[in-house]
């Protein structure tokens, strides 16, 4: 924000890469490259590979990924855009979005883990 005057919403940044607009593309790639290299730097510095554990079945990752991409675009943001940047601006839309996705996520995990026992 201080440097570029923008919200750091990851889903919006990624979506902008998929529909390239001239002059609005390279910074998005640069931002994603930064994200990509971050764990490698942590690995290099601490000599510990960052833990990435998938305890749940692959189909849940696939369906989940589809829903995350679809929902973030339809809802106009994700955890970073609505959850952090939007809430920090006291945006009513972002507060509504964050309450909704947190609530549904809690219920989803409860149903999958506690009731269906995945």
């Amino acid at each position: 924000m201080a440097l570029h005057g923008r919200i750091a919403g990851i889903s919006g940044i990624v979506a902008g890469v998929l529909t390239p607009v001239k002059g609005d593309w390279t910074w998005r790639i640069a931002f994603m490259a930064g994200l990509f290299f971050a764990p490698l730097i942590v690995w290099l510095v601490t000599a510990d590979k960052p833990q990435v554990e998938f305890a749940h079945p692959l189909w849940m990752t696939i369906i989940g990924g589809l829903a995350v991409g679809f929902g973030a675009r339809l809802g106009g943001g994700c955890t970073s855009g609505h959850g952090v940047c939007g809430m920090a601006r006291f945006s009513k839309r972002s507060i509504a979005a964050t309450v909704t996705f947190m609530g549904v996520a809690f219920v989803t995990v409860f149903v999958l883990h506690q009731i269906l026992e995945f």
């Binding site: 994200l35 989940g64 990924g65 995350v68 679809f70 929902g71 809802g75 909704t100 549904v104 989803t108």
Partner: peptide, 23 residues
């Protein structure tokens, strides 16, 4: 906004990843 966020929450709860951490 609300339907999208609900679908997003469903996906987040299933995959355990959102866009930033995913990348």
């Amino acid at each position: 906004l609300l339907i999208g966020s609900a679908i997003f929450g469903l996906g987040w709860g299933m995959a355990g990843l959102c866009p930033g951490p995913g990348i």
